[in-house]
Computed example of a mutant assay.
Amino acid sequence: MRVTVEEPWPTTESEARAVQERLRGTVVARDDFPPIRRLVAVDAHYSEADRTTWAAVAEVDPRTLELTRSVLLARPTSFPYVTGLLSFREVPAMAAALAMLPEPPDMVLVDGQGMAHPRRFGLACHLGVVTGLPTVGVAKSRLVGRFDPPGMARGASSPMYHRKELVGVALRTRDGTNPLFVSVGHRVSLQTAVDLVLAVTPKWRLPEPIRLADRVSRMHRP
């Protein structure tokens, strides 16, 4: 799979925000993907000692959620940590890791925000637009948006609004645990994103593909 990351890559906050404003209109917020035969999740981990970003891809069997393939790739970290601009640190490494797969995935779960973002262009949106792949944002914490706490049972959900716009859903994936924050990335509708996340989270709080990607992203540690 060939992936081209826009060049030159932004190096300042103002340049990065301008890119988000320019590309936000290219996000497709409706279902536009084939039957899911190749399901992957992506995650990233930083090594501050040598300013390296480690990006991981975990591919799972959509029926059993068992790991079928993984990729771990390292690239220099070229953008500082700035709230709302995380994608400019992670997308180059994530896109390069996805490009190492022998075939493009049918769906990508991203450990991060999608449209639940101040400029409606979080990590999952950015990665989806750059690669052209269907993506879903699955975040462990809220960046923007107000919501009523969902019920305590698994599957309970509550819509999340920011500036009167529906940007995501707070989803309880395990009885009594904190909700996850699911939002559109690219080429997926919000309802489909919620249904998919719940379907691949049979036991723990986090979707199984993202749990596996997190483990792979930390395998470089001694």
Rank of each mutant, 00 (worst) to 15 (best):
R75W: 04
Y46R: 07
V57N: 04
L72Q: 14
T83I: 13
S78G: 12
V40W: 00
S70V: 04
T53L: 10
F79N: 09
V40L: 01
H45P: 00
P76M: 00
F79W: 04
T53E: 01
L72D: 03
S70F: 09
D50Q: 08
D43C: 00
P80L: 02
P76W: 02
S78I: 04
V60F: 02
E59Y: 00
A44Q: 13
S47P: 01
V71K: 10
V57Q: 12
R38L: 10
D61P: 05
L67Y: 06
Y46A: 11
R63W: 11
A49T: 15
T53N: 08
R51M: 11
L73T: 05
L85E: 03
L73H: 10
T64L: 00
S70H: 13
T77D: 03
T77M: 14
A44R: 03
Y81F: 14
S78A: 14
V57K: 08
V42M: 03
I36G: 10
A44W: 03
V40P: 11
R69W: 09
L85A: 10
A58I: 12
R51I: 00
V60M: 01
I36K: 13
D50K: 14
L65P: 14
Y46L: 13
L85H: 06
L73C: 05
W54E: 01
E59T: 04
P76T: 03
T77A: 05
L85C: 07
V40S: 05
P76N: 03
A44G: 11
R37F: 11
R38D: 08
I36W: 08
